[in-house]
């Protein structure tokens, strides 16, 4: 700082520092555009669902923290609410209260607190909770609101379109343009919120880029210009289902993705690839939750393999000679 008075420099106070709790609440704020669009297009039932999930998550977290003898104030650091919001968003609006409760309990209680709380979970808590109810009660989760579109989500339409070609299915009235009617707008809104995360450096851009590039590349490689067996174009895959939510808000959970930069690329690519494989060839219409959980399991290995190696240390025998 040439020209500055040294006295000013000496008395300058410490630079303001980020706080973890503030950072986690920013993630909640960044989810808001997407939530707003979901409430607008799919009904106000979502608001109730999110509120109940949030309150449940905070109370479960508080109970666990009490039982573990830790400060209950940690329950309000924003991480439990993020988990609750992600679970609430993933479940269809108007889902039974007990299914919602079970998902939140599985997420916050099982996947997070039983593993040691914030920063110690191996798997994304929200996706554990969602996957738990998805495999246990598939019928409950298949009911999406029937007022705007005829019950089925775009992914369902594409999966069960029988002899229709992809182009026909996509161009039908009820579908919309690229990602399916409400979903393309929801995905756009999550994309906007996700950009806030990238700007605030709350999400690692390498993970996001990895997910989107791998998903796009896989879709582009298998895209056959829209026949009846087509798996869909990259644009369709980017803007349908939970793609943007997964890429920006779920896969980027820093606790459960690798810490090395190359590991983050590989992790993102793995998530993107698995989403495509499950969507195109699996029996579930969307595979984001399973993709993220499988990639979470691979994260420690990815970190281990992509570790920057230090210079070779001398042999143990030599070390002893030195010390002696």
């Amino acid at each position: 700082m040439p020209g500055a008075n040294p006295t000013d420099l000496a008395t300058a106070t410490l630079p303001p520092k980020a706080r973890s709790a503030h950072l986690l609440w920013w993630v909640n704020l960044a989810l808001l555009p997407g939530i707003a669009v979901m409430v607008f297009t799919l009904g106000t039932a979502y608001l109730w669902q999110l509120a109940i999930a949030g309150a449940l998550a905070v109370s479960i977290e508080s109970a666990c923290l009490l039982a573990r003898g830790q400060s209950v104030r940690l329950a309000l650091d924003g991480s439990a609410v993020v988990t609750a919001l992600l679970i609430g968003i993933s479940l269809p609006p108007g889902v039974s209260l007990w299914v919602l409760s079970l998902a939140v309990l599985g997420g916050v209680g099982l996947a997070k607190q039983l593993f040691g709380g914030l920063g110690h979970n191996l798997f994304n808590p929200a996706m554990v909770g969602y996957a738990l109810v998805l495999v246990s009660f598939p019928a409950e989760l298949a009911v999406w609101p029937a007022d705007a579109i005829t019950g089925a989500t775009p992914l369902d339409i594409i999966s069960h379109r029988q002899s229709q070609t992809f182009t026909e299915a996509v161009s039908s009235e009820q579908f919309g343009n690229w990602g399916g009617l409400p979903w393309q707008w929801i995905n756009l809104a999550f994309l906007a919120g996700g950009c806030v995360l990238l700007v605030l450096r709350l999400a690692r851009w390498r993970v996001v880029a990895g997910v989107l590039l791998a998903l796009g590349a896989a879709a582009a490689l298998t895209y056959d210009a829209g026949s009846s067996l087509s798996n869909g174009s990259p644009l369709y895959h980017w803007f349908t289902g939970a793609t943007m939510l997964t890429a920006f808000f779920v896969a980027t959970d820093p606790v459960t993705h690798p810490q090395s930069t190359r590991g983050q690329w590989l992790f993102g690519a793995l998530v993107g690839l698995l989403i495509f494989v499950i969507r195109a060839y699996g029996s579930y219409p969307d595979g984001a939750a399973f993709a993220v959980l499988l990639a979470n399991a691979a994260a420690p290995s990815l970190d281990h393999w992509t570790l920057t190696k230090t210079k070779d240390e001398p042999e143990a025998e030599d070390k002893h000679e030195d010390v002696a």
Binding site: A18, S20, A21, L23, L24, L74, D77, S79, G117, L118, G119, H120, R201, L202, R204, P254, V255, Q259, S260, D303, T308
Partner: peptide, 21 residues
């Protein structure tokens, strides 16, 4: 408070280490 692996430390480390790990 617990580590959230936000990577602010590893982004800044002059020796390119990963302090969080």
């Amino acid at each position: 408070t617990p580590c959230t692996y936000c990577s602010r430390c590893s982004d800044a480390c002059p020796e390119a280490l990963a302090p969080q790990t």
